[in-house]
Simulated assay, not measured.
Amino acid sequence: MQLTRYTDYGLRTLIYLALLPEGKKASIDEISQVYGISRNNLNKIVHQLGKANIIQTQRGKGGGFF
């Protein structure tokens, strides 16, 4: 089975979030540096995951996603 890059990046994002300690939030910059994904692609992926209620997002100071 072959995955698209979009799906691969989405799964990597979910794995990264699953491995975070309870209550810790991640940022787009943090994940893009770890996996070498462009910020623009990751921004689109996180937006779609948030719209689907797979992850929770929080904007502003102290924001992130979890």
Rank of each mutant, 00 (worst) to 15 (best):
Y6E: 15
K51T: 12
Y16C: 01
Q48W: 00
Y9I: 09
G10Y: 08
T4G: 13
H47T: 12
G64N: 06
L42N: 03
I37H: 02
I15Q: 06
Y35F: 15
K25I: 07
A52Y: 07
L20G: 06
T4S: 15
Q2P: 14
E30D: 14
S38V: 09
G10P: 08
P21W: 04
F66W: 09
K44H: 11
D29Y: 13
V46P: 06
L3D: 14
L20V: 07
T13A: 10
G23F: 00
G23L: 01
M1C: 10
G64W: 01
G60H: 03
S32L: 03
G10K: 11
L14S: 04
I45A: 07
K25Y: 06
S38W: 01
G64P: 02
R5Y: 14
G50P: 02
K44M: 08
T7A: 15
L42H: 01
T4I: 10
A18Y: 05
H47S: 14
K44G: 09
R59Q: 11
D29C: 12
Y35I: 03
R12M: 02
S32P: 06
I54N: 07
D8I: 15
F66E: 05
L17N: 02
P21A: 09
Q48I: 03
L42V: 05
I55H: 07
R5H: 14
I15H: 01
V34L: 07
Y9K: 05
I15M: 03
G63W: 04
P21R: 12
E22W: 04
G60S: 06
N53W: 04
Q33E: 14
G63E: 09
D8E: 15
F65W: 09
E30Y: 08
P21C: 05
I31W: 00
K51S: 10
A52F: 02
T7F: 03
A52N: 07
L49N: 10
L42G: 00
N43Q: 13
I54K: 04
Y16W: 04
F65N: 06
L11S: 09
K24G: 00
Q56V: 14
I31Q: 04
T13H: 00
G36Q: 09
G50T: 08
Q56S: 15
K25T: 04
Q2F: 14
S27Q: 04
G50V: 02
V46R: 10
I28K: 02
A18E: 10
G36E: 07
F65T: 08
I31F: 02
Y16R: 05
I54E: 01
Q33W: 05
Q2V: 15
I37R: 03
L17K: 03
G62T: 13
E30M: 13
K61F: 11
